[in-house]
């Protein structure tokens, strides 16, 4: 469903991403790994429309999306989280999820002002969807807390829930386990698998936690200094000499 072909991104003299290719099939978890500064986040930024890539193509469900504005890409069903959590921190937890559903509630101003029956139905639906996902990530009891007051692990889960209420087809997670304790990482592990199994989303995952990556990935892409180094199943990656030398070896 997603195909990245020879993606390049240049910042002035720095070639942050150099001819990176990857593809994601339906119902798949694909990971991108590589040392810090390898260009992983930059790949995400190109895919999600924050940067306009300087070279290459990005095809989502057969359509070219590179260079499209970010909000349009998100509306196509490609939604991301951020390496550093980005919540609407002064809004409550449930409001965070309602913001994400503005498209499901895309009615005109007047029908909202006078609360037409169809508006009410849609509003109730989005509240129910929010409740469902909060329950799913264990935050339902905190629904009316300010998002900024949540613990770090809870913020991470809220960010994922906020993506899920948009009903995406492809979820991009940028280091979701960073800063989590082992128990939380395990929960995250299960959550990501369940997203694929039960909700039929494909996942692109950037992650440093090797056990997590090896555990849940169907395929892994390694990049190093902007260049693709290897790609394959976790088993293949584990045994790849280049990868061991460049990345796993030093860890």
């Amino acid at each position: 469903m997603l195909e990245v072909q020879n993606l390049s991104m240049r910042f002035g003299g720095l070639l942050a991403v150099d001819e990176v290719s990857l593809d994601v099939q339906e119902h798949e978890i694909v990971s991108i790994i590589g040392p810090n500064g390898a260009g992983k986040t930059t790949v995400f930024n190109c895919m999600s429309g924050f940067y306009k890539p300087t070279g290459g193509k990005i095809l989502f469900e057969g359509k070219e999306v590179q260079g499209k504005p970010d909000y349009k890409i998100s509306r196509l069903g490609m939604v991301r989280t951020f390496q550093h959590v980005r919540l609407f921190s002064q809004m409550t937890v449930v409001e965070n999820l309602l913001v994400a559903q503005h498209r499901h509630l895309n009615t005109n101003l007047i029908s909202g002002l006078i609360k037409t029956p169809s508006y009410r139905t849609k509003e109730q639906k989005s509240l129910d969807r929010a409740a469902y996902w909060l329950d799913r990530v264990g935050l339902l009891d905190l629904a009316n807390r300010e998002a900024g007051n949540l613990a770090y692990g809870q913020q991470r889960r809220l960010e994922i829930a906020r993506c899920m209420v948009t009903e995406p087809k492809l979820l991009m997670l940028d280091e979701p386990a960073a800063g989590l304790n082992p128990a939380e990482t395990k929960e995250l592990n299960q959550l990501i698998i369940s997203l694929k199994e039960d909700y039929n989303v494909s996942v692109v995952l950037i992650e440093h936690d090797m056990s997590l990556v090896m555990d849940i990935s169907d395929r892994i892409n390694v990049i190093n200094q902007g260049r693709p180094l290897a790609s394959g199943t976790p088993e293949e990656i584990r045994q790849n000499d280049d990868v061991i030398k460049a990345y796993l070896g030093e860890a």
Binding site: F50, D70, V79, F82, L87, F88, S89, M91, V99, H102
Partner: peptide, 18 residues
């Protein structure tokens, strides 16, 4: 809510399709 979301974090708001 969209007004507030954009005030709070423009990048996150855009990433959600606003």
């Amino acid at each position: 809510r969209a007004w507030e979301a954009l005030r709070e974090d423009e990048i996150a708001a855009r990433s959600l399709g606003l």
